[in-house]
Amino acid sequence: KRYRAVYDYSAADEDEVSFQDGDTIVNVQQIDDGWMYGTVERTGDTGMLPANYVEAI
């Protein structure tokens, strides 16, 4: 699945990823209600991200 960031996010922990509004997130997997795991296409960084900061595309 592919998602697009709708807000900027700065990683708060080493297992999270930072991204900017408009970034595409690929290979996304749902972890639980609030978190997903995926790769930021622009940077190649992979990690956890907050589900409410992205939307499906």
Score class of each variant (00 low, 15 high):
32 D>A: 13
30 Q>R: 14
12 A>W: 08
37 Y>I: 12
13 D>S: 15
56 A>W: 11
53 Y>A: 14
12 A>S: 11
6 V>K: 13
20 Q>H: 11
37 Y>L: 12
55 E>M: 12
47 G>I: 03
43 T>K: 03
29 Q>C: 15
9 Y>R: 06
22 G>K: 05
25 I>W: 02
47 G>D: 00
22 G>A: 04
44 G>W: 06
55 E>S: 09
30 Q>W: 15
30 Q>L: 13
17 V>A: 05
34 G>D: 15
27 N>M: 12
17 V>F: 05
15 D>I: 11
31 I>N: 06
30 Q>A: 11
18 S>Y: 03
53 Y>H: 09
40 V>L: 04
27 N>P: 02
26 V>F: 10
17 V>C: 06
18 S>H: 04
52 N>Y: 10
34 G>N: 15
11 A>I: 03
16 E>P: 00
1 K>Y: 09
12 A>N: 13
24 T>N: 08
33 D>R: 09
53 Y>V: 07
42 R>N: 05
14 E>Y: 10
40 V>N: 08
8 D>I: 06
57 I>N: 05
49 L>F: 15
33 D>L: 09
13 D>P: 03
27 N>A: 09
28 V>C: 12
8 D>M: 09
1 K>E: 09
27 N>K: 08
24 T>G: 05
17 V>R: 02
27 N>I: 13
14 E>T: 12
50 P>T: 03
10 S>V: 14
15 D>Q: 13
18 S>A: 05
9 Y>S: 01
5 A>L: 00
2 R>H: 08
18 S>F: 03
3 Y>G: 00
45 D>V: 10
25 I>P: 01
9 Y>D: 00
26 V>P: 00
35 W>K: 06
5 A>C: 08
23 D>A: 02
56 A>C: 11
57 I>D: 08
57 I>H: 07
9 Y>T: 00
20 Q>D: 07
2 R>N: 08
4 R>Y: 07
25 I>L: 10
51 A>I: 11
7 Y>F: 12
2 R>E: 07
28 V>F: 04
21 D>R: 15
46 T>I: 08
42 R>K: 07
15 D>L: 13
19 F>N: 01
28 V>W: 06
52 N>P: 09
40 V>P: 01
38 G>Y: 01
6 V>S: 06
21 D>S: 15
43 T>H: 02
47 G>K: 01
11 A>W: 03
51 A>R: 11
40 V>Y: 01
49 L>C: 04
42 R>H: 06
57 I>T: 08
30 Q>D: 09
29 Q>R: 12
2 R>K: 12
37 Y>V: 10
6 V>C: 12
29 Q>F: 14
21 D>Q: 15
50 P>Q: 06
20 Q>C: 14
24 T>K: 06
40 V>S: 01
22 G>N: 06
7 Y>C: 15
5 A>S: 04
33 D>K: 10
10 S>A: 12
30 Q>C: 14
46 T>C: 09
53 Y>N: 05
30 Q>V: 13
33 D>N: 11
8 D>N: 12
7 Y>R: 15
3 Y>H: 03
4 R>D: 00
48 M>S: 06
48 M>D: 03
50 P>C: 09
39 T>C: 09
3 Y>A: 03
50 P>G: 03
40 V>K: 00
31 I>H: 07
15 D>N: 15
49 L>T: 01
12 A>T: 12
17 V>H: 00
3 Y>R: 03
18 S>M: 01
10 S>N: 13
42 R>E: 06
51 A>Y: 08
35 W>I: 05
51 A>F: 08
